[in-house]
Write a protein that binds this DNA or RNA. Structure first.
Lengths: 204, 204
DNA sequence: CTCTGTGAAACACTTCACAGCG
DNA sequence: CGCTGTGAAGTGTTTCACAGAG
């Protein structure tokens, strides 16, 4: 029963968001399933990885469940995040309001452009990339978001690895081959559009 | 052997990117595998869904393979894309240079803010959301990217569906429940960070 | 009687290992 | 020989269906 499947981890995060849209002290697997669009059996199986959280005949206690999921996802206290690359995308991400309310705090942006370094974006400082490793090691952030051009991405990834960062969200359009010690999630716009293109073609 | 697995479709898009980094007229499953970080057997299995494309003892013809993948992904001619929401993120996406070279053309951004409508971002016009359906129906775009606030997302999705758009990439932090006629890929920053948080916790 | 938790079956996807083609 | 294409085995994930708790 140990070792939560990767697919389940991804859904737990969705259930967490979904809980916000549900009313009532207790909720059933059925109602969660309806909100996130999966089967009720799937929800029960997923939640069973957290141990017995529900009450038979009644459902799950909403608040208790929220905490249990957050604990399992490591969302205790505030998690520090760094944004590497202060270009268009980096700045847009810095302006995204959802971090704070989800328990994430952006510590800083990093760039190598001297005309940007020292400035601020959405209230966040832009620091030089060379200072990143020290900030990482002193625990200012635990997760990094790569928002650089493609050419810079693998270099940045190597530096992050060296600085002991294990979790990376990559927005650069590059195929990154992370060391096994790292967990990298790629969000490549081209790839996503290409996948959508396939499903468009195969829907008529 | 028909019906390409979803997982394979996602990798085909990656192989396509990976081909750019490989030299030579012919390439082996081994070399593709090395570039995108999967097993060679996986690559061969995936490519076999395209029919017999390789030559035993030699490998795959790079140019031929690229075309075969593009054809399968529906990347024939140029595919039109719309960006809904001309805020921070929408503007950042509009400035992303990778669309053109991958065969996608952004037709327009859409917004409801009258101070934005009529303006331009990165050379692209911002049109009123109310004109979107007509543009969709006249074939100006086939894929839409939602870059609105969370509250607006499901309303936009409904409008897109009504306008006959089947393929949507959603950047709004909302759990969207698409009709079965649509294929929606969600890129939710919070969800991604929460998943990364889990793997960070479970790596020490 | 309702709704959870879970064996067991079904399904989906990946990897192995090798026959066979060029 | 080298490298593809693919049965067969293995692994991971989802769904069914129901026992059992409240």
């Amino acid at each position: 029963m140990r070792a939560i499947p990767r697919a389940t981890v991804a859904r737990l995060a969705q259930y967490l968001q979904g809980l916000d849209q549900l009313e009532g002290r207790t909720i059933s697997s059925q109602s969660i399933a309806a909100v996130v669009g999966v089967g009720a059996a799937q929800v029960r199986r997923d939640l069973s990885y957290l141990g017995h959280q529900g009450v038979r005949g009644v459902g799950y206690d909403a608040e208790h469940l929220r905490r249990a999921i957050m604990r399992e996802l490591g969302l205790v206290g505030t998690v520090g995040v760094a944004i590497v690359g202060a270009g268009n995308l980096g700045q847009a991400l810095a302006g995204y309001g959802g971090f704070q309310e989800r328990g994430f705090t952006v510590f800083s942006l990093y760039d190598i452009d001297h005309s940007k370094v020292g400035g601020r974006v959405s209230g966040l400082p832009i620091r030089h990339l060379d200072t990143m490793a020290a900030d990482a090691r002193s625990g200012r952030f635990a997760i990094a978001i790569i928002a650089t051009p493609a050419e810079a991405a693998s270099e940045v990834l190597a530096r992050l690895n060296e600085a002991g960062i294990r979790s990376v969200l990559n927005f650069a359009p590059a195929v990154l081959r992370p060391p096994t010690s790292m967990e990298v999630r790629n969000v490549d716009l081209s790839t996503e559009l290409q996948i959508l293109s396939f499903y468009r073609k195969h829907s008529r």
